[in-house]
Amino acid sequence: MAIRAHDAVAGRDGIATVGSAQARPGRASLALRRERQLAYALLTPTLLVILFLVAYPFCAAIALSLQDKMVGSPGRWVGLANYLELFRDEVFLRTAWNSVVYTVVAVALKFVLGLTMALILDQERRFNNVFRTLLFVPWAVPVIIVALNWRWIFDDLSGFLNNFLITFHLSRDIISWLSDPSLAMGCVIAVVVWAGTPFYSMTFLAGLQAIPRELYEAAEIDGASIVQQFVYVTVPRLRTIFLTTVMLSTIWTATNLQFVFVLTRGGPASRTEIFPHLAYTTALGARRLGMGAAVSLVFFPVLAVLILLLTRRMLRPTDD
């Protein structure tokens, strides 16, 4: 979704304003002032929301991370002590590694699957609308339910998977999906991919449908193979959509708590421990709010840099 947009103004820089302000410098200041006032008035609700409901809690979280603060007791300022303690803990490295693997693999798989789905759904066939709706199902199911449902599927003794495998003699032993250290992370990622792929296929499909058919026809006349058509016609036209989708999805994936919380609680033996979950257990399990805030903020710079790079790319045409 989102998709695009900011570069829409490409090549139109400076005409973002309508009207004659630039033409008649004499009245410019008045017109500009009015415009400015109107702009701020229109933005007031949005800015209030951001200020009170995002910026303030965020600043409060930063302040928390600099304190030694337990639930229900006054905090004590300790500077960067929480962060230092965190960096010294070997749990930190493991969690960082897990978080990166989890995010990168999940996003990559979602991308590949989503693109495949979109290409398939872009083909012509009967009942395509029905298929589109069916493949969209996971997006409509609340995350907490997705996680609970999959936990139920992976259940060692009563779950669908083991039941299925044993009923059809595909396996003699039960497989401990979420207990086996070599399987657990894969299972968690599978669930994340299941839930998140429709978002990709939806946006990619929209992008594919916006590509004029004539472009393909022209390429075909020039003797381009299917692969060449994909590489030279499709991919360049989807670039912005790729960027936006990946960016949003990376943020949503990396900050999601519920999948790990419901499926594995970070186990077995910390194999699936990731930052949002570690932050939650530190803040509410151990009730160390200060430390919990530090844990949840430690991944922030990584994502922030990533977004900065991506949005710079998207916003470039409008930057002056």
Partner: peptide, 21 residues
């Protein structure tokens, strides 16, 4: 002990017993 007990939550042992497993 069932190997899956490693990923049980607090209800894991209840469920195992209640389902005669």
């Amino acid at each position: 002990i069932p190997p899956g007990a490693i990923s049980w939550d607090n209800s894991g042992n209840n469920k195992a017993y209640q389902s005669r497993q």
